[in-house]
Amino acid sequence: MQPIVYPHRSAPPKDKRTQYAFGIVTLFPSLKDPYSKKGYEHFCDADSNEGYIAWKLKNTQRELSDGSNSGVRRRSSQPSDSSGPELEREVTKEQQLEGDQCCEAISLLKHSTDKEQIFLKMRATFQHRQKLIHDPQRCSTVLTVFPRFLETKGLVLQDFELLFGAETSPKFLEKWGTLLKAKVIEQAKNLSKTPQLDYLIQSADKNPDEDDEVPGWDSNMASILLLVYLLPPSLKKGAVKISIWEAVNHVVKFHKAGFC
């Protein structure tokens, strides 16, 4: 990667990156992606400005930047939480891709149409995804790096199982309808009333058999969204304060079937 960086400094033009990508698959035909339009998008996609070369350049620039700052990174003096969504749990011991192999898998994921291959590559990049999620500077890019979450059913469940194990992962849904749901609705009724909160309580309290007839959230989803009211978003230093209803919209968005 050094021949790309130094002749063009730290920002080689897009046409040069595309030229290198084309040269790679020309010299090494086995690296050509048969599922993409030009065959080299996993190395350099001119439209999205992504791919292996872009990823490698970013890492090289980051390493050079770290070196100029003596390689010392500041760490927060505040102790980390011992629980909650920000806790870095011990993840699966399965073989995980790292470095260049991980980057290639991420690039291929964006162009592959083989569902079995998508699940295998997502499984093999799970460790990298967890590091991304726990990085405050990059956590918001998860769906950009792994857009398959938006269109492939079952990938979220696979990650949940890899994180918590096959024995633990189904317990939430097993206990939700019979034990937890009623308690959440009962506690939510004791909160200060707002139109949005009342709407969710009414949706959560309705008979599941009526969900298809009554527009809005179904009973189970509404009761899960009530958790946002019971566990309101905390405000970190420097963060923009948002309302609980805005936080609900960050959890899940509702789109009627058949509409764009």
Results as ranks from 00 to 15, higher is better:
residue 220 N to P: 00
residue 258 G to N: 06
residue 96 Q to M: 10
residue 95 Q to T: 11
residue 250 H to I: 08
residue 110 K to L: 02
residue 221 M to C: 10
residue 217 W to M: 02
residue 193 K to Y: 01
residue 152 T to Y: 06
residue 155 L to T: 09
residue 7 P to R: 12
residue 162 L to E: 04
residue 133 I to L: 07
residue 18 T to C: 14
residue 231 L to D: 08
residue 42 H to Q: 09
residue 255 H to D: 08
residue 51 G to Q: 09
residue 219 S to D: 04
residue 156 V to K: 07
residue 168 T to K: 13
residue 176 W to S: 12
residue 32 K to A: 13
residue 28 F to A: 10
residue 222 A to F: 05
residue 220 N to R: 03
residue 4 I to N: 07
residue 114 D to R: 11
residue 145 V to W: 05
residue 233 P to D: 01
residue 25 V to E: 10
residue 7 P to G: 10
residue 217 W to A: 02
residue 195 P to H: 01
residue 255 H to S: 11
residue 184 V to R: 07
residue 92 T to H: 01
residue 237 K to M: 13
residue 258 G to R: 05
residue 220 N to C: 02
residue 13 P to W: 00
residue 33 D to E: 05
residue 257 A to W: 01
residue 111 H to P: 00
residue 111 H to N: 09
residue 139 C to P: 03
residue 241 K to N: 07
residue 59 N to H: 13
residue 172 F to L: 15
residue 221 M to K: 04
residue 81 D to A: 14
residue 247 A to P: 04
residue 190 N to L: 15
residue 104 E to S: 05
residue 89 R to P: 02
residue 104 E to I: 04
residue 123 R to F: 00
residue 143 L to V: 06
residue 47 D to E: 15
residue 151 E to L: 15
residue 153 K to A: 15
residue 27 L to M: 09
residue 54 A to L: 12
residue 8 H to I: 00
residue 213 E to G: 00
residue 6 Y to Q: 14
residue 215 P to G: 11
residue 15 D to C: 02
residue 51 G to A: 13
residue 159 D to Q: 00
residue 138 R to Q: 14
residue 14 K to W: 01
residue 30 S to P: 00
residue 49 N to T: 08
residue 13 P to K: 07
residue 257 A to Q: 06
residue 43 F to A: 02
residue 109 L to P: 01
residue 95 Q to N: 06
residue 156 V to A: 12
residue 54 A to N: 13
residue 64 L to H: 09
residue 211 D to N: 12
residue 185 I to D: 02
residue 68 S to D: 11
residue 117 Q to M: 09
residue 177 G to P: 13
residue 253 K to F: 08
residue 246 E to S: 04
residue 184 V to A: 04
residue 30 S to I: 06
residue 231 L to A: 11
residue 73 R to G: 12
residue 216 G to E: 11
residue 85 P to N: 06
residue 246 E to N: 03
residue 84 G to P: 12
residue 47 D to H: 13
residue 104 E to P: 00
residue 98 E to W: 03
residue 225 L to W: 02
residue 181 K to Q: 12
residue 151 E to M: 14
residue 27 L to N: 11
residue 160 F to M: 13
residue 252 V to T: 07
residue 245 W to G: 09
residue 53 I to A: 06
residue 14 K to T: 11
residue 36 S to F: 04
residue 57 L to K: 03
residue 201 I to G: 02
residue 250 H to G: 03
residue 92 T to M: 05
residue 119 F to C: 01
residue 93 K to I: 08
residue 258 G to D: 06
residue 60 T to M: 08
residue 19 Q to H: 07
residue 88 E to S: 07
residue 64 L to I: 14
residue 235 L to E: 03
residue 99 G to N: 04
residue 124 A to H: 10
residue 173 L to Q: 12
residue 68 S to G: 13
residue 206 K to H: 03
residue 232 P to Q: 01
residue 35 Y to T: 15
residue 52 Y to C: 15
residue 87 L to D: 05
residue 48 S to G: 00
residue 62 R to K: 09
residue 122 M to K: 05
residue 28 F to L: 11
residue 204 A to W: 07
residue 223 S to L: 10
residue 215 P to V: 06
residue 242 I to N: 10
residue 29 P to M: 03
residue 248 V to H: 03
residue 121 K to T: 00
residue 193 K to C: 06
residue 18 T to E: 15
residue 174 E to N: 10
residue 219 S to Y: 06
residue 49 N to G: 08
residue 214 V to K: 14
residue 142 V to W: 12
residue 237 K to T: 12
residue 67 G to H: 11
residue 157 L to Q: 15
residue 228 V to W: 01
residue 164 F to C: 15
residue 121 K to Q: 13
residue 23 G to D: 08
